[in-house]
Design a protein around this nucleic acid. Structure first.
Lengths: 126, 126
DNA sequence: TAACTGTATTATCTAAATTAACACAGTTAG
DNA sequence: CTAACTGTGTTAATTTAGATAATACAGTTA
């Protein structure tokens, strides 16, 4: 299903969260679609089930997925937050990253194009 | 000079790198300006000198600063890289962040405005 | 010479990430 | 009903990165 980098400085459960978020955001995983079970995914990726569950727990807390004990874990319906408490730190991080990339000489047009490209891919889906 | 969050999940040396990069990028610290010495900054922030040095070493590796043994550490001249090996992973991270923020319901215009704002601040300086 | 600089080393402590080995309860197909 | 799935919880052990502590050495400068 995916490939994780064990050597990476980024924790495995975060890498997994990123991958799953990406698939949810890009509608590769559809609303109410069932995710691989904790144990099967652990076996497939040859990592510990507890690590998978940690990722699932966090994704549930962030409302990207929901879990039904005994049944499985599923993709949650999209939920427009605009919750500033949640979005504000992400904007802050975005700002930092953009400033640095511009400083390194990447033209702003390239970044604006990036936004448009991602945004169009988003509309394809809705 | 700045304030660091000891409780943060982000390592202290990375927080320090971010703050210094920000000041260099926004020209608060000018080219060839001397940075606080490892020891004085450690004392001011009440953190270990080794932690400061780790930040400085990394910043030197990324060519944001240069160090002269016996003399001090100084802000490096701006260096347009467009070095894809360095910029590519940052773009990847940017892409991830933008996709998530858009998914959460922030309008793309807001992000484009952000780019313009940062970009203008950048031109003020050049 | 004294007081600064950066740099390096070695040891110790701590917290987070990960693994391991379970257990318990709800669900479902045969 | 049972067997094989699900998610969830717990407790312990291991590993690793980050941070601290205590020095040391060499270059710079007033």
């Amino acid at each position: 299903m995916f490939h994780l980098d064990i050597q990476s400085r980024k924790p495995i459960y975060e890498q997994l969260m990123d991958k799953l978020k990406e698939m949810i955001i890009h509608d590769v995983l559809k609303t109410d679609e069932q995710l691989p079970s904790v144990r099967s995914l652990a076996q497939e990726l040859t990592i510990n089930p507890n690590t998978i569950q940690k990722a699932y727990r966090e994704l549930e807390r962030e409302e990207y997925i929901y879990s039904l004990p005994g049944k499985g874990s599923f993709v949650a319906a999209k939920k427009e937050t605009t919750n500033e408490g949640k979005v504000a730190p992400m904007k802050k991080e975005l700002e930092r990253l953009i400033a640095e990339i511009l400083y390194l000489g990447v033209p702003k047009e390239e970044l604006i194009n990036l936004i448009h490209t991602i945004s169009e891919k988003k509309e394809e889906v809705e």
